[in-house]
């Protein structure tokens, strides 16, 4: 099954991109989930959509050739800065930032899409992901994002970990909580924009949260949680891409369904283990 993925260049691009996002999505996703910020990924993906729509609109209306992919990435990063500002304004209602940014993103998208004369295949690919739409240039961009994200997380791992576990304690110990958090949210925006080519706007947050949801059920410790999330993420992306290609379904759908399958299996396995353990204690 894999042979055609190695044979054709466009499939190779998709496969390599998939391997990269299957790594960085769950890597950053672990921090996102434990900080209870899962919904921020959704808000940012919709802001990314408005950027993509903006790029498509510019191209169609004015013939300005900005890649929708880069436009999406810039919007995503700007959106993340707005979320931080809003969270500071609404200190007691920090979750409000998410619906504000999410609806803002959808609202802008609707306007740009209709200005670009409605839906087309390009937009469909961005919404649900695509096996065939990844260009060589996209792959290079995503590789750079992946290297940047991975090295920054490695560099600030201990600070990010501390901030995720107990923000007050981090502040008392002299960690620059605000700066580290800002770095974290911008990295999240980049990862989301990078993943959209394969998974699509509507399902990108799933790639960051579902593998983590499965791993925290069974992991011992944070490093193991990250490692297992990445394993689950890669398995979902690869099998999702292969199934998507052979059944001609956008890979977003197949990747998410594989993740959910993994999640169900881990929940089941954990329950079985717990049951046998209590039985052993009773006996």
């Amino acid at each position: 099954m894999l042979s055609s993925f190695l044979q054709y260049e466009f499939l190779r691009n998709a496969l390599y991109t998939g391997l990269l996002i299957g790594f960085i999505g769950p890597l950053l996703g672990t921090f996102v989930v434990v900080r209870r910020l899962s919904l921020i990924a959704d808000a940012l993906s919709h802001v990314t959509l408005s950027g993509i729509a903006f790029g498509l609109m510019l191209d169609k209306k004015f013939g300005v050739g900005i890649s929708p992919f880069y436009a999406g990435m810039s919007f995503s990063v700007i959106g993340s800065v707005f979320i931080e500002q809003l969270r500071r304004v609404y200190k007691a209602y920090q979750e409000l930032a998410i619906p504000i940014i999410l609806s803002g993103g959808v609202g802008l998208s609707v306007i740009f899409i209709s200005m670009a004369d409605g839906f087309n295949t390009d937009l469909f690919n961005y919404l649900f992901g695509s096996v065939t739409a990844v260009s060589r240039q996209d792959l290079w961009t995503i590789l750079i994002v992946a290297i940047l994200v991975t090295s920054l997380i490695a560099l600030f791992y201990k600070e990010l970990f501390m901030l995720s576990f107990d923000e007050e304690h981090a502040v008392v110990s002299g960690i620059h909580a605000r700066r580290i958090h800002f770095l974290f949210i911008v990295l999240t925006a980049l990862v989301i924009a990078a993943s959209i080519r394969i998974v699509g706007v509507l399902l990108v947050s799933a790639l960051m949260t579902l593998p983590v949801a499965a791993s925290i059920r069974i992991a011992r410790g944070f490093k193991q949680a990250i490692l297992l999330s990445i394993v689950f993420g890669e398995v979902s992306v690869i099998s999702g891409l292969i199934f998507g290609y052979y059944f001609e379904i956008p890979p977003g759908g197949t990747i998410v369904l594989t993740s959910i399958l993994i999640l169900l299996v881990t929940i089941l396995v954990k329950q079985v283990i717990q049951r046998t353990r209590t039985k052993r204690v009773k006996a």
Partner: peptide, 11 residues
């Protein structure tokens, strides 16, 4: 939170 005793103390 998935953190071991070792990881918590390391903070």
């Amino acid at each position: 939170f998935p953190a071991t005793v070792y990881e918590v103390v390391s903070m």
